[in-house]
Design a protein around this nucleic acid. Structure first.
Lengths: 130, 130
DNA sequence: GGAGCCTATTAGACTATGTCTAATATTATA
DNA sequence: TATAATATTAGACATAGTCTAATAGGCTCC
């Protein structure tokens, strides 16, 4: 028996894409850094669906970093600090290219959302309920 | 060995949320109808990430309809036509409430995307490359 | 009449990603 | 000394996009 979500409908912003990939690319574009640093940075600033105000999940981020490195979007090197060894990620030329693609994609995506919102408003007419 | 996607990076719009749920709610709000009718309607008008121009996948839609009915957002009845029996979906009061939530969520989501785009532009400065 | 297309739906698998619990190890602080 | 913060990983589940494929009836065109 599936342990269905309770009250976590996508209409409240749960389980929506959070654009971790472009947010990561942007972060390491600005400055190469390690996972936890990116985690803290994005927890305050990445796309966060409204209702939950969910902080960014660490597991998902670290998995994404790994996949992005495998995909050639990030490169990493070991940094030996007094606190131990950390993996520092930087952006690759392919990652920069990817970030440019993201910009175009996001623009089209936003326009599509705007269009959907317009259609909802036209049909439902929620001026009084919102 | 995972059969990884080739050239289907999310930055090109693949595997992004397509907002099938609110699009379905809107369609059946306008007029109760059966799955294939919704499929045809949404294939031209739902949120479609740019690059792929992918048509809406039937399997995903029919699965979504089933889940939405289970979740109380849609109700259905059997319609006996000369071409056989079809399941006609309509929106429930809970579905209408969900659609209203979607509007608010979409607005916040779009604003988040706008913010991300602004940050990308500020950092990368792509006036010349776009 | 058969080939191929349109309608209409379902099954099953795989992929990407969000979310959750939990575990581990070190260092800093109260 | 307890506990909070730093830093990362493992494993599982949920949602949803995508793909191949199968079925079955009705239609048109050659």
């Amino acid at each position: 028996m599936p342990r269905r979500r309770e009250g976590k409908c996508a209409c409240k912003g749960f389980y929506l894409e959070r654009f971790v990939q472009p947010a990561v690319l942007l972060a390491v574009y600005q400055a190469p850094q390690h996972g936890f640093s990116i985690l803290k940075q994005l927890s305050g600033a990445s796309i966060v669906p409204t209702a939950g105000e969910q902080p960014l999940d660490p597991t998902g981020l670290y998995r994404m970093l790994k996949r992005m490195e495998e995909g050639g979007l990030l490169s990493s090197f070991q940094q030996h600090t007094d606190a131990g060894i950390r993996k520092v990620y930087g952006i690759t030329p392919q990652g920069r290219e990817c970030l440019r693609s993201w910009y175009t994609t996001l623009r089209g995506y936003r326009d599509g959302i705007d269009e959907l919102m317009r259609r909802i408003l036209d049909t439902v007419g929620m001026e009084n309920t919102l």
